[in-house]
Design a protein around this nucleic acid. Structure first.
Lengths: 179, 179
DNA sequence: CTGGTCATGTAAAAAGTTACATGATTTA
DNA sequence: TAAATCATGTAACTTTTTACATGACCAG
């Protein structure tokens, strides 16, 4: 079976929800996936084109009154199979999570203590804001999608984000003290 | 001031340690930076070339007996300035950390419960191994570089890795229970 | 004599971002 | 009347990985 990159699988997965057009997919990503996967239009449209070319999806062009044309994509059986197959594979290796703050702190000897403290304080603040964003999304899902079949899994991913962010905040605090 | 990408700054930073050649830089990255930043030869050599061309570093070619030639790079004042300037800037925005496991779990409705459990168990196992790797590196630094000026900062970054990995492991456990 | 270490590098491909172009409708 | 929303897409660019090429030495 041919291989695709993870962003392609993400799009394949999103097509199982009721998002059908490139525009809708982008919105879905920005609202629900953005904390662990983001994709730009520059990737979405060419990918959708390719999915169709390779028989993983079919297109239907809708002409709407007062709105631009809209292309709706639907997974084919082949597309569903490809997605299912990917879902079954465990990940081969943990990806390296690039972290600019750690990179800067790593070379902290070339900075003043104040600069390092500022770097960490700023990072902490951004993480706290992120945590709040997670809480907001979580609440939104809990309120509006209680009986949505996917909601359970969406909440799991948010819980991950919260826990990891919490740990990072605690690290900031501890490191600020130790500096 | 011209902008460079973060991998360039990483290389600039490594040149402040006593790593001087592309080969040594790669080793340094694999041993010390790998948990939050990795770079391939395909990036290192062209970057070093560029650093020299733009006056951020100077080269000295060493002819060694019984070994290949070795190019040693040294930061210039300009190079040091560029590094320092970068270190001073706080990060503009938190990067999105792509996570393949979360992406798969997000579409967990299309999997059996067993598959999701397997995915999480496998992820947990990999995280535990990673945690042990961190402990190993930490011990190595504590033992051999106690009085190295950089050691303190290196240990901070490892602490980050440990804390975040710990949180991820706890999430795996909680999610496995809740599934 | 095989595989590892030391050491350089390049070419091609893949992956991803950014900026642009288009244009109608709706809302403030 | 300005700007936001809906909706498509591409071209150029940047970043990064992968695979290849070269070659000597040393240890098992």
């Amino acid at each position: 079976m041919q291989k695709y990159n993870d962003s392609t699988y993400a799009i394949l997965g999103i097509l199982t929800t009721n998002c059908r057009s490139g525009y809708e997919i982008k919105q879905f990503i920005d609202n629900s996936l953005n904390h662990f996967w983001k994709i730009s239009y520059g990737q979405i449209y060419p990918t959708l084109k390719r999915l169709e070319e390779e028989g993983l999806a079919t297109v239907q062009t809708l002409v709407q009154e007062g709105k631009p044309e809209r292309k709706e994509y639907f997974l084919t059986e082949k597309g569903k199979d490809v997605l299912k197959n990917w879902l079954e594979q465990p990940l081969t290796q943990l990806p390296v999570e690039r972290n600019e703050v750690l990179l800067k702190l790593f070379f902290g000897r070339h900075q003043t203590k104040e600069q390092s403290l500022y770097l960490l304080a700023d990072y902490k603040q951004k993480l706290e804001k992120l945590y709040q964003t997670y809480e907001g999304i979580e609440e939104g899902i809990s309120r509006h999608n209680t009986n949505h079949q996917d909601a359970k899994y969406w909440l799991f991913t948010l819980d991950y984000g919260k826990r990891v962010t919490e740990a990072a905040i605690a690290w900031c605090e501890a490191t600020i003290k130790e500096l």
